[in-house]
Design a protein around this nucleic acid. Structure first.
Lengths: 389, 389
DNA sequence: TTGTACGCGTTATCAG
DNA sequence: CTGATAACGCGTACAA
């Protein structure tokens, strides 16, 4: 038996083994009537090495410096009513001097709340999604929540990785706008079991039962189409995004509905699906320009592509709007800058962000697990790109 | 004495007190030679309530389900070579079934690393900063780091709050681009003591000794100014940002240097400071238009404002570039869309982001605390807004 | 009014 | 190959 001395009286001869607790030998000092186990380091050594270990001040550091317990420091810093004002001021003063900053990780580990919302958006190439962000941040800040943003870069893999990363206890709730390529939703389904609320916005999917915020996809497409017809357009080409995504489908539906209403026949040749890349847009337009029965309007369901269309037509010396009218969808900043200015449907991006954040916060704060669908009202914006003379 | 029974043999009569450990009464069972204390809940109850407590699967849950220890589970999941392939597969299978996701908070608390970079940018109103983000994300992703973004919204208070929030152990390093209004830097100085590396980019300050990434502010301004002079401009108005910020000062310096070089006199009336808001820009232009000695060029140190200038001049039926040439700085997307297209200095936003991220990662990975200044090379881009006929 | 003890979910260090 | 245990830094019943 190793030479063991009693931590209280330091005697050696009075020690006897007293069974094993949790695989550790317990000792008993007959003299002091004291049970103890041997630690690898003595407490004294520990407390020494602790202080200067990290560059970050901890509650421990403050507690030791003043000579009080950690919990008192914690409470003092939180302005707990039980703590005497004397200790409070002492603690707060020292905390300031040491520029104490709580370890958010440790806090969240205990409280199970980070006061942070996660947002995943496809891209920041245009100001389209970033203005949604503004709406989100505005609402979140009011409620005392932080916002962290991840860009999925229109890559499904990145979206999945971001969802995972954020949901691993970094955030209290997730706002999600899918990539154009997202076609499986298992990454969401898995996460939904964890009880962290999720809200899909703008580009949403029906497979997963989260709350959702839409814009007026169908209604907007109807208004745009009707407007073009009112301005005398007879052959309106439709530039859609990928077939699978909700947005393409709903806006196409609105377009077709209005064609039917005006007794115009649907021509499959006039409908193109693109990934919104410049190359595909140009290809689609070229195909239309080559048709024997010429088109007199192009309705793009994305402002970004509508701008590209205008630029391309201008390059080809085709008059917009007189030969071909152009309309977009979304109301992006660039639509105001291009010449002619772009007729479009304002989906109210800021409002979409606001609504999404509101719903999410409600879920978080009230532990509301209901599923809500909200549609944000938009507005037709007529500019010169569709005003044939 | 309350009725205490031995946890091992359940006998009561064999129990005797055996001193107090950490303020808790210890008991000793003579029969089993076993020391123990009374917990408020029995272990059995605890382990029961543990399992279904949270919606999130923990290592504990897996360990208990299989009947092995937490550490083994942890190692199995990390593919530690010590673990038998049998247990590995068992663990991994169960982990999958329970859709186990590690708690990133707890992980980081132990490892002191989040594998996350924080970025704070002033705004996302234009694509200027978001393209820097792309550069950052690209480099970060390659190194296996995540990126979280906070928008300071050009508000000093929000910047300070964001810095604090992120630095509280959420990130391994910070990339920072100040707001236009940031004029105190204590919030940075405090954080620098914590040993988390910080890199300032684009809008940087000299007061704080972090590494910095610049664009060619002075050189770019020189090139633009000289280009305007070469095109025949004699009275070049200069639209600057706030006086205090580095960028304004350095670009002004470049402008003045070229004036001097060309033996042109500096006219204080031709230099305006704005906050880049539409209102202030218009006001400045109006003032210039009212001068008795008319101007023939406007050099804005921000593309955003340059676009606003062009739009305003067009509205006033003033020909750009023939009456007044316009040049910007930055090379934003909108400069390609406006008509006439904007002459500008491409600061290579993507490269700035890449360089900043590279430096930061180097600091993190090699614990490099040196201070580096890097200037990213840019390029003059001549378009029609400055091509007088 | 303050301190003790415990737990949050991990990883790391020993000790078998 | 596996398990026990001690951190990580904090919040909080409970005890005193």
């Amino acid at each position: 038996m190793p030479r063991v001395s009693c931590p209280k009286c330091n005697k050696v001869e009075t020690i006897q083994k007293s069974g094993i607790v949790r695989n550790k030998q317990r000792f008993y000092c007959k003299d002091c009537n004291y049970n103890f186990t041997i630690h690898h380091e003595s407490n004294k050594q520990k407390s020494k090495s602790k202080i200067s270990n990290s560059l970050q001040t901890s509650l421990q550091d403050i507690a030791k410096a003043i000579g009080i317990s950690v919990s008192t420091v914690s409470r003092a810093l939180h302005n707990h009513p039980d703590i005497s004002s004397k200790t409070k001021t002492a603690v707060q003063k020292l905390a300031n001097e040491l520029s104490y900053q709580p370890n958010a990780l440790a806090q969240s580990l205990v409280t199970k709340s980070t006061h942070t919302l996660g947002v995943i958006i496809p891209n920041l190439e245009t100001t389209f999604f970033s203005s949604m962000l503004s709406g989100i941040q505005h609402v979140a800040a009011k409620a005392g929540y932080r916002v962290v943003i991840c860009q999925s870069d229109e890559s499904h893999r990145t979206e999945v990785a971001n969802v995972q990363a954020l949901m691993n206890n970094m955030i209290d709730g997730l706002l999600l706008c899918h990539t154009l390529k997202t076609d499986t939703y298992d990454h969401i389904k898995i996460q939904m079991k964890r009880g962290i609320p999720i809200v899909q916005f703008y580009r949403v999917n029906n497979e997963v039962a989260t709350s959702r915020v839409f814009c007026e996809d169908e209604k907007g497409a109807e208004l745009i189409t009707q407007h073009l017809i009112d301005k005398g357009c007879k052959r309106i080409a439709l530039l859609l995004g990928p077939k699978e995504i909700n947005i393409s489908q709903k806006r196409k539906k609105g377009y077709l509905k209005i064609l039917a209403k005006n007794k115009m026949v649907e021509d499959p040749e006039l409908i193109a699906h693109v990934d919104f890349s410049q190359a595909e847009v140009v290809k689609a337009v070229d195909k239309w320009l080559a048709l024997s029965k010429p088109i007199d309007a192009i309705f793009s369901i994305s402002d970004k592509s509508a701008v590209q269309v205008i630029q391309y037509l201008k390059k080809k010396k085709i008059s917009v709007p007189n030969t071909i009218s152009v309309a977009g969808f979304g109301n992006e900043y660039t639509g105001e800058i291009i010449e002619p200015q772009l007729t479009t449907f304002d989906v109210k991006t800021v409002n979409i962000g606001e609504e999404a954040a509101k719903i999410l916060l409600e879920k978080i704060i009230n532990q509301d697990t209901s599923v809500k669908d909200i549609t944000v009202k938009g507005k037709l914006i007529v500019r010169s790109s569709s005003m044939k003379k």
